[in-house]
Design a protein around this nucleic acid. Structure first.
Length: 272
DNA sequence: TTGTGTTTTATTGCCTCC
DNA sequence: GGAGGCAATAAAACACAA
């Protein structure tokens, strides 16, 4: 075999390697070149002129895979911020500027996109988790409030019964707070059906008791348009956001803000 | 120094698009 | 059918504790 000097063919997408004499090698290096040969491979970045420069090559002999220089990485990062995919012309231009093979630039962008995607998934996970934790906390406080109100109702009911047992004549008008107690009783029954909410009491507000209408829906659809009950029409394509539209809107807004703060590229940001 | 985990660079195979 | 994208993976380079 030839001395192991390998050349990239920038025009070939398929990672085809060529020996110095132009003889094509198998796609990829692992299956063809043993360790001794790989140790003599050219540095991974160098200009096409340098590939043929014996002196340069000899100097770099012990090196195998070389990392890109800080300047090269900086330039690539800057370009990536502006555009996460390169037009072929731009790729060639950039490669020339950096003294890299176009293929190396393409690979760098490929890997950079993969890294960005991983990071983005981590960010999404963190945001969803904090949303979940916050909802859980709301749920817990509602549960406590519910128990407190229940106890209050029991206490008031007992007081009322005690008064009746004490001999209050039936014809006597009810105390002023009687309607309040009966309304509370109705509300607690309805409130028992609730499992979650967005904070605050759905039963009693500061303005006093609210009468409950006879309808079954406690969350009218026009008030929670994104909250749809599962139906037979559900094709399973739900993206998981249907029941917490406002939460996800907040998450989206936070993400946009975060990207802006971190200087993440905005122009090309898309869900993949 | 060495073992081990992480990051970076590159390859491979498959898929989509024109 | 070729070009280019992505996911999965290999392997070199690097970081770091013991």
């Amino acid at each position: 075999m030839e001395s192991g000097r390998l050349l990239f063919d920038p025009s070939c997408h398929g990672n085809m390697l060529f020996l110095g004499n132009g003889e094509p090698l198998f796609r990829g290096t692992r299956s063809v070149i043993n360790m001794e040969e790989t140790s003599k491979r050219r540095p991974f970045f160098s200009s096409s002129e340098e590939l043929y420069d014996e002196e340069y090559y000899d100097e770099q002999l012990p090196e195998k895979k070389r990392r890109l220089t800080a300047e090269q990485v900086h330039m690539l990062e800057k370009t990536f911020e502006a555009e996460n995919k390169l037009e072929p012309e731009r790729k060639t231009q950039l490669a020339k500027k950096l003294g890299l093979q176009p293929r190396q630039v393409a690979v760098w962008f490929q890997n950079r996109r993969a890294r960005w995607k991983t990071k983005q998934l981590e960010r999404d996970y963190d945001q969803l988790k904090s949303s979940y934790d916050s909802l859980l906390s709301d749920y817990d406080s509602l549960l406590k409030e519910k128990e407190k109100l229940k106890a209050e109702v029991v206490s008031l009911t007992e007081k009322l019964q005690a008064k009746e047992v004490a001999g209050a004549p039936k014809s006597e008008p009810l105390p002023a707070d009687a309607p309040l107690v009966s309304t509370l009783l109705v509300n607690v029954k309805v409130e028992d059906r609730l499992s979650t909410g967005s904070g605050g009491s759905a039963v009693v507000d500061e303005d006093g008791p609210q009468l409950v209408d006879s309808g079954d829906s406690y969350f009218p659809n026009d008030e929670y348009p994104g909250c749809v009950a599962p139906s037979e029409e559900d094709d399973g394509s739900d993206d998981g956001r249907s029941c917490f539209p406002d939460v996800f809107m907040v998450v989206e807004q936070e993400r946009e803000q975060q990207q802006h703060d971190e200087g993440e590229p905005l122009s090309w940001w898309v869900w993949q």
